[in-house]
Every structure is written in structure tokens, then in C-alpha cells.
Design a binder for these strands. Structure first.
Lengths: 225, 225
DNA sequence: CTAGAATTATGATTTCGGTCATATTTCATT
DNA sequence: AATGAAATATGACCGAAATCATAATTCTAG
């Protein structure tokens, strides 16, 4: 089993602010786990007694609405932490986490990490910064949901994934999402998402290779009205 | 000028976790201010060099969308802190804060409070908890925006204001919002908000006294489909 | 390799909510 | 008190997007 103090993944999240000693201690009680594509890591209402550090793979955070649709609120990728919010408030999970890939996770029990949160102020300030960033993104999503068209939201989603998670060698988005996932991010019907993507294709803004999407005209996508 | 260490308002926010000494120090450098209804406390892009503690009154946090509409993201009331997010990330404000009432605010300069954030872990953990709570609320709003009708969102907004900010002696919501504010919370056109409120009246769910709103049938409002 | 399932795709129709137009009421200011 | 401005209210119409229907394509499991 890998050691936290040597793990490069921590560079990407708040764990980097822990001391060598703290990391060694955490390393001793963490558990590694593999989850398969489609597996649910936790669901709404679950009591999370720890946080996950994503070593590899991607997952979605979503919430089932009363109309039966699953709204995706955030995409969590390699390097991110998972479940911090519930850890901090002590509430059960507000969202469901579902693997979009095969994933490799490290689970750190609450008892270990809460001490560090209370004693290592650099660490807690880092967590605070991440949370503040998530809150800003969430606020921006609210504004987009309320004020922009499906067409604009979908264009922005494609750009967001491109800018934040990068592309494969062939130029396609490295995060592979189904049309349903796109619909659930944008908050629209699957048919509408597909229709708009087809339209983007016709307009030469994107190309699709199977379900993979490649941006052809980033400036054009940004200008979508 | 009032003293922070004696101020009862701090009971309602993270400042309660500061020590007597820290509060005395803050008290020495804070500035009190009065803002009038409609005044903008800060706007998107402003560099905030401190946080505000709301001693009295109410304000809205909103963001101007590209379509010219102002989406309200959060209502901030007496007892709340204002501007923490920007303080923590060091970014400029992402939202605009506008007074809905005459307000009384205390401004605490960044230089003072950041030290406490880094040194008093109980305080920073409290701020973290508040931020985590805000994030949960924001996630829930995203889901509602994406998946619910204007009718449902407006019903939930009325219930939210009722439950979180209370009522006047006559039973009307104590937070007085214009129809435009309601529209900007729900993310709809003013006319649509007015239409739905009229409908709620016809159905006996609410009564209006001038622009004030009174819930007549809370259970009915909760059941709105 | 093939059958059935899931996903992607497209068309037809309906509906919710936006926009525009226009009263009516309330509010602010002289 | 009077006048103009702002907020509230309601109707008519239109358009974006949901729903329903049905292919076509891709995946998956036996």
C-alpha cells in the first residue's frame, strides 16, 4: 500500500499542507479502494465517516430531484478530495458520488483528519480556500441555470471541461461523459442536449468521434448566444 | 462606538469563537457604518479588504448575468458575515451586495481577521462550517433551478424566507422583498413571478397586504407541484 | 457472433414561461 | 395635494425546451 507522505497526488489538494508526521499518521490508518465505473461511492443521506482522496479516475456529484432527474453539481477528478463538506458540518451527504471511470481512492477516517483540521491552521485554511472556490463556482452555476439558455449552458460546459480537465492527444475532451451526463449537468432533457450538440456539429463548433467530443472552434463556442 | 466583546450580534456568527483579547483587538480597528436601502455595499470585481458583520438590516447577494438580469444568490440578514469568501480566496468579489433595508454594518479589516483565521482554529473551523453550509444551500439551489418549475421555486422561496427569517406580528414575512426581488431569486421574469403569486392568492395559499406576503396554507405551499 | 439492451439521434406536438403591451395602483417629490 | 415615476397586475402572443414517438447506432452478455 502506498504511503501518503510519498504520494504525489496530495500536491493537488489541501493534504499538501500537512506535516510529514501528520501524513505518516494518516498513511497508517487510510484504506485504499478501487471502485468500478458506475459504482456509487456514497449516496444522499449516507453518514460519511471520513474523506476520500481521488488517486485516479473521475466521478460526478449529483442530487436526485423530485422529478426523478439526477442533477450533476460537480465533477471530481484525480487529485481532488471528496466528502469534505459532510465531514465539516457533520451532516449526512447532501449529494451522491458516482464513478464515471474506474477509480482509485484513498479513504481517510474522520477521526484522523478532524484533529488536523483543528490543529493545523495551514491545512484548515487550505480546505477553507477549496470550499470558497467551490462556493464561487456553485454561485456562478446558479446564475447560469437561471439566466442562460440550454445552448449557452451546454457550450459553457464543454469549455469548462476542456479548460479544467484537458484533452486527449487526438484533441477530444479527456473527461468522457454520456449525453445523459451532459443533460444532467446542463439541467435539460437528454433529447435537448443531443439536439444542441448536433446543432454545434452542424455549425462546425465541435466534432464528435463516437461519444467523444472535440472542440473545433473555441472562440465560436465562447460566443454562443 | 460599540465594543465587539460586548456585542450580542456575534453570537450568530463565527466571531463568537474569538477570544476576549482577539475581540478587543478587532474592536479597536473596526469601523461602524450605516448604509441606506438600495445602496450597494460592494459590487462584482471590487477588492474587499475586510469582512462586514451585519448588525442590523438585510441585503441581497446577486450577480448580473449577460442578459442584463440580476440573479439573487443569497439573502444576508442581521447576524451574518458578509464578504468572507473573497477574504479567504483573496479574489475580488464575485457577487454584488445591495441593502434591502437601511443597514448597520461593522467593517473589520482583512489584516486583523486573517491572523485570527490562521491562529485560532476554533474560529477558522466555524468559518469553515458556515461556508460548508452555504455550499450545501447553493448546491440545492442549483438542483431546484435546473429541475423545478417557477411555481415550485417560488413556493419554496416563500417557505425558505418564512422558515429562516420569520414573520411580523401580523403573520407577514418579515423580510420584505419586491416582486422583482422574488423574480430575481427564482430566476424568472417579473411578470411571471407576479402571475404565480396571483395564482397562489387565488388558491388561498397566501394573502398579500400591499407588497407584504402572508402564508395562509403552509402545507399547501409545500405540496405545490 | 448474435440478440437484446442501452445510447444516440431526429421528428412532431405541447407547454411553460418569456416578451411585449397596457392598465392600475402605490410611492416619492415638489 | 398634485404629478410623474415606479411597482404591481393582467392579457396576448411567441419561442425555447419538454415530452412522446420512433429510428439508428453502439454496447454488452451469453
Amino acid at each position: 500500500m502506498g504511503k501518503c507522505e510519498q504520494c504525489i497526488i496530495k500536491q493537488f489538494n489541501a493534504l499538501k499542507s500537512l506535516s510529514k508526521e501528520e501524513l505518516v499518521r494518516i498513511s497508517g490508518c487510510k484504506t485504499s479502494m478501487i471502485v468500478k465505473k458506475g459504482d456509487v461511492i456514497f449516496e444522499e443521506g449516507d453518514a460519511l465517516n471520513g474523506v476520500y482522496c481521488v488517486k485516479d479516475g473521475i466521478c460526478k456529484l449529483s442530487k436526485l430531484s423530485s422529478n426523478g432527474k439526477d442533477q450533476i453539481v460537480k465533477i471530481v477528478v484525480k487529485g481532488d478530495l471528496l466528502g469534505q463538506r459532510s465531514l465539516i458540518t457533520g451532516e449526512t451527504a447532501n449529494l451522491q458520488a458516482t464513478a464515471l471511470n474506474d477509480m482509485e481512492l484513498c479513504f481517510i477516517p474522520k477521526s484522523e483528519i478532524v484533529n488536523d483540521l483543528l490543529n493545523n491552521s495551514k491545512f484548515s485554511f487550505d480546505v477553507l480556500k477549496e470550499m470558497a472556490h467551490d462556493l464561487k463556482e456553485a454561485d456562478d452555476i446558479i446564475v447560469n441555470m437561471a439566466q442562460k439558455t440550454v445552448r449557452q449552458r451546454l457550450a459553457e460546459t464543454i469549455i469548462y471541461i476542456h479548460d479544467n480537465f484537458g484533452t486527449n492527444p487526438d484533441g477530444t475532451l479527456s473527461v468522457l461523459l454520456s449525453r445523459e451526463d451532459f443533460a444532467n449537468i446542463v439541467g435539460t432533457a437528454v433529447e435537448s442536449a443531443i439536439r444542441v450538440l448536433s446543432q454545434f456539429k452542424k455549425e462546425g463548433l465541435i466534432t464528435t468521434i463516437g461519444k467523444r467530443i472535440k472542440i473545433n472552434n473555441l472562440e465560436g463556442l465562447k460566443r454562443v448566444e
